[in-house]
Design a protein around this nucleic acid. Structure first.
Lengths: 211, 211
DNA sequence: GTGAAAACATGACAATTGTCAGTTTTCCTA
DNA sequence: TAGGAAAACTGACAATTGTCATGTTTTCAC
């Protein structure tokens, strides 16, 4: 089963609407299938012992949620909550398992995909531990632009709350807000309400790399 | 090919000795196979832009290194350096690929393994971003004890330099050293040269969770 | 054994980041 | 569209962490 075939399967399945703020699944939940994202954006986060949510990944169109847990036959280690109204479809566990066992190509494709996720996770670890909050915020904006695009006025298409930005970056909401203000004063970005637009990509990139 | 069969294959291969401090492979290198750890311990680390090394994982007996890169057909995103004399064996890429394509069970097993690694990576991300350095150091000692054991005098079997400890935890070497001194003063651990032993596991665990 | 290099340790200080306690703005619903 | 809740913002301060400079101990090759 190729990606195209998988898509075909997912096309035939009934899709479900998930409104912004609603959960698709929660940490610790046993999943009996995976979810394909047809539209919208979901944040995948994990609650830390101190009560804060760390966002580990943002998933959009084409992403598959819950794969890891279904394959490892474990409860989910992450929660999935929509940050933009979503359309998702569900593929039951047994279909996944059957296909995995019968079709090596499919397994290898999933494997490749997971290998890629693992590399990304390694990169996040290094960023988290070796970069300053300011650098991580700068990087986050570039990431959001590259992955979700911007509208005609130059604002990021994906609008996250300040709290969500802080949770992506792994810092206190107040710190994130302060840094956003600083960036605005420095002319690196512009804001309008909660929307954020990149003005000076070059300097923002320099900032992300550290001066 | 089951894990046992894989082990058999690896047993027939010529093993190589890697001395403490020597590299098995480096970041950016193209790998034409994977390495099975027969004995010893390797650190998997990634250089951050500011020149510091972040240790992402410690691999010991039974671990397979380079899997991710071979599967994704990418250069390695990590360096592997021995922190304790090692014995490793090499399995060429083409054998891995053939087996992956012909044997669904093998692919599924590798998949499971990678799913597990991915979960661990998510946990590390949360720890890095949401815990204090002190909490992370405490956690590191417990991790080292649980995964590598301790000798009869109660010292951790795996002795890392203070610098390596700092690189696991993602902090400055001086900060790590200071915290180790504090823990010693508090009676949580004992030290003898660079060796470290856990005295009060309960309080160390409390420390790791945050008070 | 001995001397040099590396690793460990400590002090002083500055920079970063978090917390708490508010005020202002925005957004949504009735 | 008014009113109330949630989100965004700001200031003051404390805690954490990094940096630099320096002294001490350990390690290891000769």
């Amino acid at each position: 089963m190729s990606k195209a075939e998988l898509k075909k399967v997912s096309d035939t399945k009934i899709t479900k609407i998930v409104k912004k703020g609603e959960a698709i699944f929660s940490e610790g939940e046993k999943l009996n299938g995976v979810f394909c994202v047809r539209d919208g954006v979901s944040k995948l986060s994990k609650l830390s012992p101190n009560g804060k949510d760390q966002i580990v990944k943002l998933a959009t169109q084409g992403a598959v949620l819950g794969q890891r847990s279904v394959i490892a036959e474990e409860t989910s280690n992450l929660s999935a909550v929509a940050v933009k109204d979503m359309e998702v479809c569900f593929i039951p566990k047994n279909i996944i398992e059957e296909t995995l066992n019968s079709n090596p190509d499919f397994a290898v494709e999933v494997l490749r995909h997971m290998a890629h996720d693992l590399k990304e996770a390694d990169d996040v670890i290094v960023n988290m531990s070796q970069k300053t909050v300011k650098q991580r915020v700068a990087e986050a904006f570039i990431y959001l632009r590259d992955n979700f695009g911007e509208d005609k006025e130059g604002y990021l298409s994906l609008t996250l709350s300040r709290e969500d930005i802080a949770n992506v970056v792994g810092t206190a909401t107040e710190s994130a807000i302060r840094i956003i203000s600083d960036f605005k004063k420095l002319g690196l970005i512009k804001t309008s309400g909660k929307m954020i637009g990149i003005y000076d990509e070059k300097r923002l990139l320099e900032m992300a790399k550290g001066h």
